[in-house]
Design a protein around this nucleic acid. Structure first.
Lengths: 355, 355
DNA sequence: CCCGGCGCTGACAACGTTGTCCAGGGGCTA
DNA sequence: TAGCCCCTGGACAACGTTGTCAGCGCCGGG
């Protein structure tokens, strides 16, 4: 009883710090029943204008705000969806996240999100925390490869859509970009411009998109009857140091690559830096990057990219999610969105004449 | 009873879709009391290893997951904070958002976020929705100028920290970048390099940072005893079309500006595009942008910027928020983080000789 | 004039969890 | 061996809201 508020600023708070008025308080003040307050708050019909006014006044006077926790507990629906991605700060995920949010907003839902930092354990921890909150649905960009832990949750009714990468070891909706096709196009484009020794700098091979892009690289090379030298392929973490070392090694080999294909936007940017720092060779190295990025057109040369629309990816996934929430049944679907090659110069550079 | 756990793809789920087992179910199955289950779930002491094992088995068998809505209702704390920003897709807010999330995570809290799209009404709507969820705290990048609607919420104990822009018409914690100082530095830098006619392309004048940056521009100009022509200042929405038109007008005037100061990263990028598209003039136009951005160093010339560390902004705000949540009292504080001028070439270009 | 019905209101239970409190049993001490 | 305390477990209320249902006037029609 004597837990007086630590009163941040106010000296004599009327009610205990952290205690808020409830519908009961409002009802008492307005001289009406509890349920009538509920009706007013929810805009339900069947309340006299006069009564409603009295209730509204009490609400304003007390600063009442409905406690959604209680509402959620009672109704069973949280009107919120969870988004688990790799890194909010990555420019690829910003638009995706925003698109998901827009769709959620259109459906009156809030977005709870978290970054897995590409750590499967952290992903699971986050996802299960969201499930404990009883989010209505989940949009997941998975970091791990085993999502069996989600099966009971999905069975219990939490709709789930995977984005950018498919789920591992369970059957679930997924919305993906055509990594294989895009990668194939990129490499074929370089080959068409005369390149024979093409380096591929990719992400960790465990990541689905990285594996698919590598597959596309292989396919395009072998379709053209070109050999693939081990030294031309480097998969691993995409921190600048590693990428820098890998790119430099490929470029400084006795038989250097004449073109590079970068597996994602972070890699591309690092490669651009590496190329810019090297003393200008007689014949510049060709480059294509997976993922478009801002200003790619303003560099010289402009950077040719395989563009995927991350906002569209997010929108599609969220749409699918809400369709599921609205009761759409059927088997899990896998949607693959096309990629687009945008030539800007760097991908059209020819190899050295004496290649 | 016969509620066997539904297999992932099981044809005949025994329990109704959307109905989940509760602690009561677990207790019944384990043959213990309700509270004992609660104790196990929360890792509270006072449970025999044997009993605990039985409970754990029941939990696994039923696929039980604690309902946090009920927990929250009971405990009063949600272990979640709200983040309201302008646009998740804006590269400036990605790192900020991520930093807030990291801090929240360190404190065991989830992050609920939404974009206001620079619309005060939408901001209020979002903030109040978060308050209804009883988030423990709020980090807000305000779009509006009147936050009195927040007073009752803050009085009720929802800690609130404003970032990037201060609160309007209420007293609240704020973490800001030094827009005035940064802007002043930028313009002084241009003046030091000989410029006299400097254009300022800013955001809507109602936005605090835009106003501060304009103030910095004015201060630096008048300190140098330079006049300011109305046509040199353009404030408004930062969509490419408007910025493009404004920049073009300044550059094509009879007495054209010789240098431009761009009020934020979106503006800067558009200006870079405009300058790149114009036929190369004898003397290139100098440019400094507020906000650093990726690849600014790789353009030619490199773009000189006033850098503010958006991640640091977010981290500082979140730290302050959790200090408040941990009971730190005292008057609302206003923290101003310094900006840093990064010369890269575009800001050091001299004006035409005959200026 | 009476009765049926309708429009408005409120009492009450339930959602799933946690805190409080009490009971029973076993071990230790006197 | 008796008494006491601690350790374990369970019954119950409460958190704030919403759905159900019943009651009470009042009006119109028969």
């Amino acid at each position: 009883m004597t837990d007086t508020a630590p009163g941040t600023a106010s000296r004599t708070p009327t009610r205990r710090y952290g205690t808020r008025p409830t519908m009961k308080d409002v009802a008492a003040r307005a001289g009406v029943g509890l349920k009538t307050v509920s009706r007013v708050v929810n805009g339900e019909p069947g309340v006299t204008p006069d009564t409603e006014r009295r209730v509204q006044e009490a609400i304003t006077a007390l600063g009442f705000r409905r406690n959604d926790s209680a509402r959620i507990l009672r109704k069973g629906r949280t009107a919120s969806i969870g988004l688990v991605l790799e890194d909010l700060a990555d420019p690829f995920y910003g638009p995706l996240s925003r698109a998901v949010e827009e769709v959620a907003r259109a459906h009156g839902a809030l977005l709870i999100n978290g970054s897995s930092a590409e750590d499967p354990e952290r992903e699971q921890e986050l996802v299960l925390a969201l499930c404990a909150r009883r989010v209505d649905g989940l949009v997941i960009i998975p970091a791990g490869h085993d999502h069996r832990y989600l099966a009971p949750e999905m069975a219990a009714g939490i709709a789930t859509v995977f984005v950018d990468r498919p789920a591992g070891r369970i059957d679930a909706d997924a919305v993906l970009a055509d990594s294989f096709g895009g990668s194939h196009d990129a490499v074929a484009h370089l080959i068409a411009h005369g390149h024979r020794r093409i380096g591929f700098l990719g992400d960790l091979p465990g990541i689905h998109t990285a594996a698919e892009r590598l597959r596309g690289y292989h396919a395009a090379m072998s379709e053209a009857g070109l050999p693939i030298h081990d030294a031309w392929v480097s998969l691993g973490p995409t921190d600048p140091e590693r990428v820098r070392a890998a790119a430099t090694a490929m470029l400084d080999a006795t038989e250097p690559v004449t073109a590079l294909f970068a597996g994602n936007n972070r890699v591309t940017v690092t490669v651009v830096r590496v190329l810019a720092e090297r003393p200008a060779p007689a014949t510049p190295v060709a480059l294509i990057g997976f993922d478009d990025f801002e200003l790619a057109d303003l560099l010289s040369p402009g950077i040719t990219v395989i563009a995927q629309d991350s906002a569209q990816l997010g929108r599609t996934a969220a749409d699918l999610l809400f369709r599921r929430l609205d009761g759409a049944g059927g088997d899990p679907r896998r949607l693959v969105l096309p990629t687009r090659l945008i030539p800007r110069g760097s991908g059209e550079l020819p190899p050295p004449a004496a290649s």
